[in-house]
Structures are given as structure tokens and as C-alpha cells.
Amino acid sequence: MRAFVPILVVVAGLIGLWYFAMLPMNAHQAVLDAERAGAVVSPETAAERRDMSGWSLVTRNFGVVSQGVWAQDRPRLPAPHQVAIELWETTVEKKITSKRSLVFHGWITLSATLVGFAIGTVMGVLLAVGIVYNRAMDLSVMPWAIASQTIPILAIAPMIIVVLNSVGLQGLIPKAIISAYLSFFPVVVGMVKGLRSPDPMQLDLLRTYAASGSQGFWKLRLPASMPYLFASLKIGIAASLVGAIVGELPTGAVRGLGARMLAGSYYGQTVQIWSALFAAAICAAVLVGIVGLIQRVTLKRMGLT
């Protein structure tokens, strides 16, 4: 329980900062609204105000700004409560089959995330096994794996989509592949380290039993790598979600959290963008939490915690 107090303090601080930042961010619109409603503002014309900073508008029109920034239709920075209300309305109050439901869009993204995560994890583990057991792979795979991660995903995602589209793959699979592209890397790095974690003495011990290579893998290397694998999976699943969202951006997709963000930005619906962002963040937190839970249960059953 005592851990909650500092967490709440930090959250409250961030929310406070957020509300505070709304003043300069939304000041122009607030002053414009007030002017249209007939109030006296300074400076008087929009043209004069255009190049002014938000803060100077706030100081010169504190009265109207401090009232007008909180509930705008298309604020530059929506208020936390606006985002919260939007989140509530688009999750709980909409049918999940509705095109406006974030649960619907969230599931589209999540399914691509999970498929991509599964592909990435399997790929990562297989590559790691190859690297540990095959000298040629040891020397050749890692540089490529590292190179693959230095390419901005935003640059390569459209190409993957286009290439796969030309062979008839659309929808979930291309997104899952982009997602796997991001998530395999931490798994490779973690698993290589994990599979190599048994010390020489433990390997010697297996030699004295005349154990076969596969026995060494299943009985020593694989179980020894579990703590490393789970650390990687936590990074990998968050990366998968990012990959799935990025995969929705360049396609003009109409479904998914990425599509919501894109649509929001086309129509200046900042509240929609922010609520999609938060939905993605909540999904990521839940996914990482689930992996963490599986980690705790598994390692506890293995006696490793």
C-alpha cells in the first residue's frame, strides 16, 4: 500500500502539469471564441494574435483564457477529463461491434500484436538457438539482426505492406509481420544470453553424464534461459504493439488504434487521437502486466524467485 502514495503523487503531478499546459496551448482558440462571443480581447484581431506565443496571450487575456481552454471541441491539447470521457464513451457506452468503439479498434490492433508477438518470439528463439549452436550463424546473424533494428520502422513499414499486398496478403498478416519485425530482436538478444548462461562447470557436469546435445538443450540451456527470455518478452510485447500501430498508419487502414489516430489527425480530432493513444498505452501496460504475471508464476514454479 505504501507504494501507492508516491505513485499517486507522481500521477497527480503529471495531471496537474497537463492541465497547466492547456492554458498556453489552447489560448489562441479560447481568445478567438471569446472574441466571437463579443468579449473584449487583446490584441483585438486574429491576425495580430497569430504569431504571438501562447503565454503572452494567457497573460494579456487571463480571464477569458482561464475559462475558455477546458472544454473546446478541437483543442490543441485536450483536457485529461475530455480524454477520459471520450475513452468511457467509446469503450463502455458503445457496442463493441460499432465502428466508433475503441474496444473494436483495440481488438483489431491487439490481434495483430499478438500474432506478431508470437511470430517474433518463435523467430527470436529459433535464431538464438541457431546462434548458440551454429558457428556460422553465430558470426553472421547478429550483425543483420542489429542492422534490421537501425532501420526506422516508419520507413520500412509501408514497403512491407506494399510488397505483401502485391502477393495478396492484406489485413492482419502484414501488420503482424511488422510487429514481429520489432519484437524478435529483444528475444534474440535475451535468449542468446540466456542459452549461454550455464557456466562451464554445469556443461562439464553434463559431459560427465555423456549427455547428448539435445539433452543439454532441454535440461540445462533452455531452463537456464527462462529468466532472460521473460525479460525480453516484456520488451518484445510492447514493441509488438508499436509495430502493429505503425503498420496501420501507412495503409490508410480504417480499423485499428493506428487508424483512429490517423483519422483523428486528418479531422483535427485531438480528443480522438489522445484517447486512441491512451487506449494503446493501456493495452501495452496490460500486455506487459500479463507477461509479468506469467513470468512470476513460471519462475516461482521453477523455484527461481
Binding site: 554445469q202 562439464d204 560427465t208 531452463p223 537456464a224 521453477m302 523455484g303 527461481l304
Partner: peptide, 21 residues
Amino acid sequence: ARRARAYGYVFQAAGLYPWRT
């Protein structure tokens, strides 16, 4: 002899697998 499992070897460290009882 090793392949015939002729000996048991005890190392300086116990080297028990922590994930096994």
C-alpha cells in the same frame, strides 16, 4: 569410460540446478 558412464564427478561448487528440487 566417460561414455560408458564409469564415474560420478563432484565439483567444487555443488552446481545444483536452481530450478530443480
